[in-house]
Design a protein around this nucleic acid. Structure first.
Lengths: 221, 221
DNA sequence: GCTGTTATCTTGACGTCGTCAAGATATATT
DNA sequence: AATATATCTTGACGACGTCAAGATAACAGC
């Protein structure tokens, strides 16, 4: 018998599914715990045993969001290697695509509704996603003699790392574009189906600019 | 007698001040209309006449947010020219600094609480801020023969513009870093006073990478 | 300066929200 | 079979956004 299969069957999973659906439909602003419970067919107080409160539910969704990003990036990088493509471009595209595919998750991960940042699973997923970004950014840097064990000493104290600027640069470009696109800030630039067109612009042009910056590595004043 | 000075004096401004204070203290998640009304010393229904509903109030704050960004960028660019500095670096620094100074405004502008995107003032402020970014990014591009009237045909239909990738690249880097910093995603990288240190990293390193990419303008595969 | 009009704010109420305490019910354990 | 534990319901509480109706203050026309 499956764990958690009592009255409902698997309320924990049902609540997460409902939460993702509500988030995708109504966004973070329109998200309510009661509606998720309603969709799962239980009373409003039922989820408390599984998640504590609404923050716990959102943290669970955010954990899935980080793991989804990490899975997509890992898979994309591997596929790029097999196809002879660039790995960093692949993970950038995967980042944007994953956010567009499951906007509910992404909005929770980087949204303003409170999360439980102390949650162990959440921290693990976040560190994993960031680790992939670190690894792929470093492998794109011109200096070949980069210490390979840098990833392994994550997460404690990344500050002072010589590659930190480039890592944050990569994340900023990718995350910034994704956020602007997903939040509709770029909608005025494009007509119908505009987000897909902008997504194409990202993978064809913005990633090229990113790679240029990383490979040049010359101080500019 | 000042416009809007009836019973309260100037409820519209008082509500906006209260909203910014609440946003700065409790973030977007903890924001309520009733608390703002309480701080302004009026009943919960009073603001309706000035803003319609809570979305109207947030839209007013967001308008201030865009105008604040535009003011800061404009001022920084002018100061940079006088001091012999780089204008695009200056507006990037101003973007980050403004967000850190008034996180409440920034969180509303780019947050998940609903805004009224049709509001005329809001659209004007948004177009103004974006226009500055467009202008300064273009002036950094190597091709000197850029059509100078490009800014003036904002906002309708920016799509298809040859410089759009670079413009979005600049915005993505700047906005992405600001968002990650303000939302605490980078807190694990730095100790106490870490945000200021990361802010310094941005202006010293990330902007340099951005300028490198813009000035090179070579397709990278 | 008085009166009517308009703008502003209060009052009271409605439905919904998150959460809690207490009780009911089904599974697990012994 | 009896007990313990996990799960869910019920009922309630205060707080929320918003609305309709009424009160109050400022303005406008004469």
């Amino acid at each position: 018998m499956a764990r958690g299969a009592y009255h409902h069957g698997d309320l924990r999973q049902a609540m997460i599914d409902a939460a993702e659906a509500v988030l995708a439909e109504k966004g973070v602003a329109g998200f309510t715990l009661r509606e998720c419970a309603r969709r799962a067919g239980v009373s409003p107080a039922a989820p408390a045993h599984h998640f504590g409160n609404i923050t716990g539910l959102l943290t669970a969704v955010a954990t899935l969001g980080f793991d989804g990003l990490a899975d997509a990036m890992d898979h994309a990088a591997e596929a790029a290697t097999e196809a002879g493509g660039n790995r960093l471009r692949a993970i950038g595209e995967a980042y944007v695509a994953t956010a567009l595919e499951r906007p509910g998750r992404f909005r929770v991960v980087f949204g303003q509704r409170g999360l439980n940042a102390d949650d162990a699973e959440f921290k693990r997923a976040a560190a994993r996603a960031f680790g992939i970004l670190v690894r792929e950014t470093q492998s794109e840097l011109p200096q070949a003699e980069v210490e390979q064990d840098l990833f392994s000493r994550l997460p404690p104290s990344f500050a002072g790392d010589p590659d930190l600027p480039e890592i944050l640069f990569t994340w900023s470009v990718t995350h910034g574009f994704t956020t602007l696109l997903l939040d509709g800030q770029l909608d005025f630039l494009a007509g119908p189906g505009g987000r897909v067109a902008l997504q194409k612009l990202h993978s064809e042009k913005l990633v090229a600019l990113l790679l240029t910056a990383l490979r040049t590595r010359e101080p500019v004043r």
